[in-house]
Structures are given as structure tokens and as C-alpha cells.
Nucleic acid binder design. Structure first.
Length: 540
DNA sequence: TTAGGGTTAG
């Protein structure tokens, strides 16, 4: 094993829980080797008594179990079988659980398997490593890599690709890159197209598209050529960076090289073209996708279109897309309907939006918090707080936990309506209920209180922020300073401005212009003049 | 039997 791998292992084996697992695996090592020898003599699948179990596992590893209890019951049955089923079958069970996204259960079962000397192989390890990565436990994943070595197994391309993906998901693409490079350098693994694509995606998602493009070009010159996923990954990153011409160029390049774009490729490009309102090109690409590439637009692409039309105020076009989807038998999902709700709301048609919400429910689909937030925002803008509050209560009835955005929308609505006392009561209620309060919530409430002549309440709240673990930022300082200025609390405003400057923030354009207005229009106040002078001197 | 890319938000 190369030194780089040792250093990766060391770095990721620092959690105590991780050490426990590692020592657990090490202690089982000798027993396992004995078991493997024993099992190899006794696990001939052809004379296995569990044909029915095997048939079930083949089916469930593809479709998944109906529920977790069923899967666990099968696992239990397998443990009680004599002789024990082959590692292949245990892996099938673990795979079925991975498909159901029960990652922690897989890790737990794997531990049981180790304790009970159930046969495991490098594939079992790979499955569990993948689960650790999905559960953001990269430390466990590396402990398991150590387990592979301890058992005398050899990590394969799946093992390393999974670990590289795990590191990238933890925003550790630099470590992933070093690991990738050194593994290749020391001939520990030969990356395939999935490994390259994984590394390229990790670099793209962590803001290193330039490096990703370099690796992509390197790959092109190697034996392992980029495929549709590799091209789509780079194209998506270029689109997200606004480098649409480069993305379109690469799209043409892939077609020339015979690598066919798929729905994912088109989704990225269509989305950026929609954002840029290059509608003719959107139409051209949609036609090319459907007619030339024979790629049917899926719910994802349709949702991008509904969202784009919604943002451009094209409600009729958004509705037309839903009709097309229904004609083609492509079911809009909650996200598609949320985009449609947004389209109605942005045209001031809240009743239409509410009808869409009811459509979602009538189709036995579950609206999510985002869906509700869009509607709540629209009703708050119309100052129909009673309807907004009804919807908020509906969320709770439907078992939806409101987000910090939900509360911010409602607080903003209450303040806009001029009922800041109610806003304050609502704020304390959500605080008592243990909901998350962020700086935006404070900004909204402080602004609302100041604008409704409750500046003293605002000042107490501002001073309480730190007690609640929130450090006032530049915007929050400016809001409270403007509130004091508007309410003629010039001394307080002056003190707060000094404090703000001490924190390293400057007055923003709104504050300086208000200050200038007051200096020009009010009776000459020495504090105001001093503040204005400070602003001028510091270049605010 | 194991690894890769996407949509909604104040």
C-alpha cells in the first residue's frame, strides 16, 4: 500500500467511533479467516437448501423490499440457515437495502455479519463503504478500507471510486485529487470511465472546473475515453458558470465524436438557455433532442421548462407544458407543480395557484415546504395574512415542518401589514417551539419593528441576538441604524455606527443616503453632522 | 451482488 494511502487512512481514522469499528474489525480478522476456510468447503450453492431464499433475493435486490421489517426478517432467516448462504446472497440483501436508502441499517447489519462470522468479500466491503459515504461518514469508510487490507483482500476500482466520491461529497476534493493521482502513480488502481467521471464531477462541484477540464482532456488522450456522463458533467459545470458557448461547443464536439447526449446533457444546456431567455435556441435543442437524438424529454426537463416560463411571466406557456406532459403520459411531480404554482403567483393569480395545490393533493402527492412557501409568500404580498396563516396551519396538519423561510415569509407579511406586535408574538412563539431562527429572520423583524415605530423593541432584540448565538452582520447593523435615524434616536444611531465600524462594517448606500437627507433637511443636529462627517471620511 | 452526472427558495 502506498504512503499516500496510509496518510489518507490516518487522517480519516481519528473519530473514536471509527477506532472502535476498526479494532472490532481487526479482532474479528483471525476468526474470519478460519471461517472463510470452513465456509468455502461447505457453501456449494448447487446443494444449498435455500433455493426459495435465493429466488427472493434476486427479485428484491432489483425491486427492493416492501418495507424494512421484511428485509430484516430475511436477514434473520439467512443467519439461521445451515449452512450459511454464500457471501453473494448476503451482498444481494445489502444491495436491496441500499436501493431503499437504508444506509445506516446496512452498516449495522455488516457489523452483525462480522460478529457472527458470516462470509464477506471485497464486494460486501464496497457496499458498506458506499453506505458510509452516503451517511457522510468518510471516517468509517476509510476504517473499512483498512478492514479490507487486514483481511487480506485487495481493494478494487469500485472501492477507490467510492472513496473518491465520498471525499468529494465531504468537500474534500483536494484530498480526493491527491488520492486519485497517487493511486494511479503507484499503480494501486487503474481508473475506468466511472472513476474519471467521479473525480471530474467532484472537481466541478467544488469549484475546480478548470482542473476538471484538464483531467477531461487528459482522459481524452488516454485509453479510457470520456462517455456521455463525463461530457454531461463538464457541460453542466460550464453551464452553471455561465460559459454557455463553451458548453454548446462541447455538446457539438461530443456528437461529432459519436458520444450521444442524453436527457441529462440537454437538461443542463436547456436550463441555462432558458435563464438567458434564448428561447429560439431552446426550441432548436428540444427539436434536436427529440427528432435527431430520439431522446424523450422527461419530468426533469419539463420541470426546467415550466420553471423557466414561470420566471419569465409566461403562465400560458407553463400551463401548455403541463398539458403536453399529460398528453405524453409524463406525470408532473411536486417540483413541476411547485414551479406552476410560482407561475400563477407571479401573475397575481393566487386562486389559480391554490387550485394547483389542491390538484397535487387530489393526485395523492405530497406538497413540500417549498410549495407552501411560494403560496404563503404570494398571499402575504397580497396582505391576506388570514389565508396565509390557514395554509401555515395546514402544513402542520400534513406533518410538514415549516422551514426558517416559511417563518420569515410570515413575519415579513405581518410586518408589512403594520401589525408588528403580532409579528413579535409570532417570533416568540416560534422561538419557544424550538424552530430555527437565523439572521434573516432577525433582519426581517428588526426592519418591521423599526418601520412601525417599535424601535425600542427592535433595539432590545438587536442586543439579544448575540445571546441567541447570532452575530449581527452588516445588513443587520444598517437596518437598526436606519431605524434609529428614522425615529430620531440620533445618539443611539451614532453609537451603533461606531460599533458597526469596530466590527469591520461600513454604512451601506441606503444608510448614507438617509443620513444625507436628514443632514440637509433637519435642524442642524451635531450628532447627525458628526455621523455624516465620519461617513464621508471613511468613504462610506 | 458493489462505484459516476440533474430541477424548486426569502
Amino acid at each position: 500500500m502506498s504512503s499516500i494511502l496510509y496518510s489518507c487512512l490516518r487522517r480519516h481514522q481519528q473519530g473514536s467511533a471509527c477506532f472502535q469499528l476498526l479494532s472490532h474489525l481487526q479482532s474479528l480478522n483471525i476468526a474470519q479467516l478460519h471461517f472463510d476456510a470452513h465456509n468455502n468447503n461447505n457453501s456449494n450453492p448447487s446443494c444449498s437448501p435455500h433455493i426459495e431464499l435465493q429466488r427472493l433475493l434476486v427479485e428484491k435486490s432489483k425491486s427492493g423490499f416492501d418495507n424494512l421489517a421484511d428485509a430484516l426478517a430475511v436477514f434473520d432467516k439467512m443467519l439461521k440457515s445451515q449452512p450459511l448462504p454464500h457471501d453473494f446472497h448476503f451482498n444481494q440483501l445489502l444491495t436491496a437495502l441500499v436501493r431503499m436508502k437504508h444506509y445506516n441499517v446496512v452498516v449495522s447489519l455488516f457489523r452483525d455479519m462480522c460478529s457472527l462470522c458470516v462470509p464477506i468479500d471485497v464486494i460486501s466491503f464496497n457496499i458498506v463503504i458506499n453506505c458510509c459515504c452516503h451517511s457522510n461518514r468518510i471516517d468509517f469508510a476509510f476504517a473499512l478500507l483498512a478492514g479490507i487490507f487486514k483481511r487480506g483482500f485487495v481493494p478494487d476500482v469500485f472501492t477507490y471510486t467510492t472513496l473518491i466520491r465520498g471525499l468529494c461529497c465531504q468537500h474534500k476534493s483536494a484530498e480526493a485529487r491527491v488520492m486519485f493521482t497517487n493511486l494511479v502513480k503507484f499503480k494501486e488502481f487503474e481508473p475506468n470511465v466511472v472513476s474519471y467521471s467521479t473525480m471530474i464531477n467532484g472537481l466541478c462541484k467544488t469549484g475546480h472546473t478548470d482542473m476538471a477540464v484538464w483531467l477531461f482532456r487528459f482522459m481524452e488522450k488516454s485509453e479510457c475515453k470520456p462517455n456521455t456522463v463525463t461530457y454531461s458533467t463538464i457541460i453542466d459545470s460550464l453551464c452553471k458558470l455561465g460559459l454557455v458557448e463553451d458548453a454548446l461547443k462541447l455538446h457539438s464536439e461530443m456528437i461529432e465524436k459519436g458520444v450521444l447526449p442524453n436527457g441529462w446533457t440537454y437538461a443542463s444546456i436547456i436550463q441555462v438557455l432558458c435563464k438567458l431567455k434564448r428561447w429560439e435556441e431552446v426550441d432548436r435543442l428540444l427539436k434536436q433532442m427529440i427528432n435527431d437524438m430520439k431522446v424523450s424529454p422527461d419530468v426533469h426537463i419539463f420541470t426546467i421548462l415550466v420553471d423557466a416560463y414561470s420566471r419569465s411571466g409566461k403562465l400560458d406557456d407553463a400551463k401548455r407544458i403541463i398539458e403536453i406532459m399529460n398528453e405524453r403520459g409524463e406525470c408532473p411531480d411536486t417540483v413541476t407543480y411547485s414551479a406552476l404554482i410560482q407561475a400563477y403567483c407571479s401573475q397575481g393569480q393566487t386562486d389559480g395557484a391554490l387550485a394547483v395545490l389542491n390538484t397535487i393533493k387530489s393526485k395523492k402527492m405530497k406538497p413540500n415546504c417549498y410549495t407552501y412557501n411560494i403560496l404563503l409568500d404570494a398571499y402575504c404580498r397580497e396582505l391576506k395574512l388570514d389565508i396565509a396563516m390557514d395554509l401555515y396551519r395546514n402544513m402542520a396538519c400534513e406533518g410538514l415542518l415549516p422551514t426558517v423561510e416559511t417563518h420569515n415569509i410570515l413575519l415579513h407579511g405581518l410586518c408589512q401589514l403594520g401589525i408588528s406586535k403580532e409579528a413579535l408574538t409570532f417570533f416568540y412563539k416560534i422561538q419557544d417551539q424550538g424552530h430555527k431562527l437565523d439572521i434573516v429572520i432577525y433582519r426581517t423583524l428588526l426592519d418591521g419593528l423599526c418601520k412601525n415605530q417599535y424601535v425600542d423593541k427592535a433595539l432590545s432584540l438587536f442586543h439579544l441576538m448575540r445571546c441567541n448565538g447570532l452575530i449581527p452582520d452588516k445588513d443587520t447593523h444598517n437596518i437598526i441604524i436606519r431605524g434609529c435615524l428614522r425615529n430620531k434616536k440620533y445618539n443611539e444611531a451614532c453609537k451603533l455606527m461606531d460599533k458597526m465600524v469596530d466590527c469591520g462594517f461600513l454604512a451601506d448606500a441606503f444608510t448614507t443616503s438617509l443620513l444625507q437627507h436628514l443632514v440637509l433637511s433637519e435642524v442642524q443636529d451635531p450628532t447627525l453632522l458628526a455621523m455624516h462627517q465620519k461617513c464621508l471620511q471613511s468613504g462610506m
